[in-house]
Simulated assay, not measured.
Amino acid sequence: MTIQQILTFLSAKGLLHEDEAFTIAGGEEAASISLTLPHLLILKDVTEEEKAILSSRLSMLYEKESTLILLSSEGRIRRLTMGEFRHDLGKEPFLFLFDSRKASGKEPTPFTLSPLEETMDMLLAPGGCPWDRAQDHRSLRTYFLQEVYEVIDAIDKDDMENLKEELGDVLLQIVFHARLAEKEGFFTMQDVVDGINEKMIRRHPFVFEKITVEETKKLLGDWETRKRLEKNRKYLLSGVSKDLPSLLLACIIQRKVGSHGLTEALEDGALSASCAEEIKAAVDGKGAVDKELSVGRFLFALDRVIHAEGVEPELALHRYARYVMDQLRAFEKGLFQRGKSLMDISPEEAQVLWQDFCRKTDTSVLP
């Protein structure tokens, strides 16, 4: 159907009159839709990303119970509420017809942190909240960690309303720390925002600069190396916090050493071939959720076995992960003395040099 055919069809159905003003928008206009004209037609050339933007934008402009009209490519018409519309975005409609006169009547307020910053200033000012005024970066540490875990819990429950609230709690912690730092003369909230924005642009030259496909592939492959150079980090695990939960810490260590061919060398035969095959067989051919459940079952059983030996698994894994970090740092120091680094040598050479390091220091990965 052409645009004229669409308009004729809508007029015949009494949904649009010839003397009424309207505007036509495609996917590119999704983020800038306004209420300047009574009617708005959203045509079918909307990508998945633009649909998400469009849904968010229109949900701000239109009340939840506002009525809109969906016209399919077969000419079928359905009336939907704004709430129902958000669920229909993924069904590839031909177009939507909105009556702006039923919208909320005002443009959404531009995003700003100012209200939250002003509230925090009042809390921290003389005569403000005694508890807030008594806090420092270290005393807030536990609360920040707690809020992050509550965000994760909301994500796991797929509870969007709770996620909105918990993200707000995390944002409060960020503003709190930034305001304390500003009072101490270190940095401001604007410095925080500018810093992360500049970092994202700097680390994504394949998005913000004109480079070839081959250059893009190389940049993606050198992600960890570029981060280390940017931060002037001398060691492979520089910047990795030893205070992370033990299993997460172990995962990060293995991911970072994996690109240098040292994963199996660090395991040092700790996992028998039969056990590894048993785990592989348990997850083979299963979907993502079932794989997680199967592996979780192994970890759950392993926890019981370890506890039966009088050992706390969390502490044991954490101690071993920290030991591996110390061993790797000693190994890298030896490489530096020989004019080498893990960034300069191949995975094969790294494995040979690691074995040489273990022999010369009379140590292995196991303490």
Rank of each mutant, 00 (worst) to 15 (best):
M1E: 01
Q4M: 07
F9C: 02
S11K: 14
S11D: 11
L15T: 00
L16G: 03
E20W: 06
E20C: 01
F22C: 12
G27L: 02
L35N: 06
L37M: 10
H39E: 06
T47H: 01
T47P: 03
E48K: 14
E50C: 07
E50T: 06
S56Q: 15
S56T: 14
S59G: 05
M60K: 11
E63A: 13
L68D: 02
L68Q: 08
L71M: 10
S73Y: 00
G75S: 01
R79E: 07
H87V: 08
L95A: 11
F96C: 11
R101K: 13
R101T: 15
K102M: 10
K102N: 14
K106W: 06
K106C: 04
K106I: 04
P110I: 10
L113R: 09
L113N: 08
S114R: 15
P115V: 05
L124F: 09
L124N: 06
P126G: 09
G128S: 02
D132N: 09
R133N: 11
H137W: 07
R138M: 13
F144Y: 14
L145C: 02
Y149E: 13
V151A: 11
V151G: 10
I152C: 09
I155W: 05
D158A: 14
E161W: 09
L163S: 06
K164N: 09
L172G: 05
Q173K: 09
Q173M: 15
A178G: 01
E184A: 15
G185Y: 06
F186Y: 10
F187H: 08
F187P: 02
F187M: 08
T188G: 00
M189G: 01
M189D: 03
D194G: 01
R202Q: 12
H204Y: 13
K217R: 15
K218N: 09
K218M: 11
L220A: 06
G221F: 05
D222G: 01
K227Q: 02
K227Y: 02
R233L: 00
Y235K: 00
L237W: 04
L244F: 08
S246R: 05
S246F: 04
S246Q: 08
L248A: 12
A250K: 02
A250N: 04
R255D: 13
L262S: 06
E264Q: 12
A265S: 13
G269E: 12
L271H: 08
C275L: 14
A276R: 15
A281T: 05
V283S: 08
D284C: 08
A288M: 04
E292T: 07
S294Y: 00
R297L: 13
I306Q: 06
E309K: 06
L315I: 07
A316Q: 07
A316Y: 03
L317I: 15
L317T: 05
Y320N: 01
A321C: 07
A330L: 14
F331P: 05
K333R: 11
G334R: 08
Q337F: 01
L342N: 04
L342S: 04
S346K: 08
S346L: 03
P347I: 01
E349A: 12
E349N: 10
A350C: 03
V352S: 06
L353R: 06
Q355N: 04
D356M: 05
D356H: 07
C358K: 11
T363C: 13
S364Q: 11
V365Q: 05
L366N: 08
L366F: 13
P367F: 12
